[in-house]
């Protein structure tokens, strides 16, 4: 018996929501970043399940691009955190409120 494709999609929705909670509630910048990576992965899972459902390899190619962009995003974001840490000695986002109000 094969797994119904809807299970994969529901799993992707659940993982995406867990990532959303993390991105909204955590204060450590790097953990927020990890939550965003989690959301990206949930979306990858959804794209791949649609690719499987439609039998189209283009979905796999798109996931490949998402992986590459995630790598670029991680490099830039972590460099930003290092620069911010150098200035403020913290990456707690509650204390990085120069642009907040």
């Amino acid at each position: 018996m094969t797994v119904p494709i809807a299970w994969y999609m529901v799993l992707a929705a659940v993982l995406f929501s867990i990532g959303t909670v993390g991105a909204l509630t955590r204060r450590n910048g790097i953990t927020i970043f990890l939550s965003i990576e989690l959301m990206l992965n949930a979306v990858n899972l959804l794209i791949l399940s649609y690719a499987r459902l439609l039998g189209d390899q283009a979905g796999q190619v798109i996931v490949f691009f998402v992986l590459a962009v995630a790598a670029a995003e991680a490099a830039i974001g972590l460099a930003l955190f290092i620069a911010v840490y150098r200035l403020r000695r913290t990456i707690d986002v509650n204390r990085l409120n120069l642009l907040r109000w």
Partner: peptide
Amino acid sequence: LGMLLWRTHGPD
């Protein structure tokens, strides 16, 4: 979202 996806693709 889960219910939407389930209803759309459950019988597939």
